[in-house]
Amino acid sequence: MAKWGMVIDLDKCTGCQACTVACGMENNRLPGENWQDVLFYHEGEFPSGTLKWFPRPCMHCENPSCAEVCPTRATYKTEDGFVLIDWNKCIGCKYCMIACPYGVRFYTDEKAQIQPDIKQVFKSDGKRSWNPPWRAPDNRDDWQHGVGIQPIGVVSKCTFCYHRVSKAPKGTADLDPKNPALREFTPACVLTCAPSARYFGDLSNPHSEVSKLIASKRGVRLRDHTGNKPQVYYLTGGAAGTIPTDRRGKKA
């Protein structure tokens, strides 16, 4: 059984947000409610001030605190490493949103991020939160795995593109987007990443590219002290893409 994981090389990340947009369109996210997000912040002052950024998908933790607190066991960890939400079971209580140390869970806001509310333009059928004309084919809906347009009243999150990855041939070490045979199984954010800063593969396979990168380029996990043990690793060589340090400048 594979243990899917992601490596993000921050030395290569250009902060372009194509991952965010590809995810948003693949998973029919509402504008601004980004399962995959890039956070920007500023450090320092002229002439040495700079911009930093941090790409953030769900970490698909080995010990997901979100699953721990879920009263209905809607959030669960699969054998091959996905952390998913069963929308049939989710009651929208949002405990998981509090428990997640990474801020990557979403409840559809009543107030749209961008006005006028696009939900009123591409109206819901009563179950889904909205119904954009570019939505994925209806037969892709898979509420048990939190795949499809987010229904009303539930929490959603990055699925590691479960609907793509789960169809990958057994024994695949890496979902390399350069391999035409594996493109359709590769997560949207990995597929489109122009500088190829994202890698996706089997962490339990010592021969996989992701395992090698973590070893040779010193992959680190975000907030490892929480014990959540993310399955998303970052490579950081001090470039602008970076892990947040909570180092605050002077209050503006």
Binding site: C16, A18, T20, V21, M25, P133, W134, K178, T192, A194
Partner: peptide, 12 residues
């Protein structure tokens, strides 16, 4: 096989 952030938004 890659796109910039705008490219995915064509359907809009």
């Amino acid at each position: 096989g890659k796109l910039c952030p705008k490219g995915h938004l064509g359907a809009y």
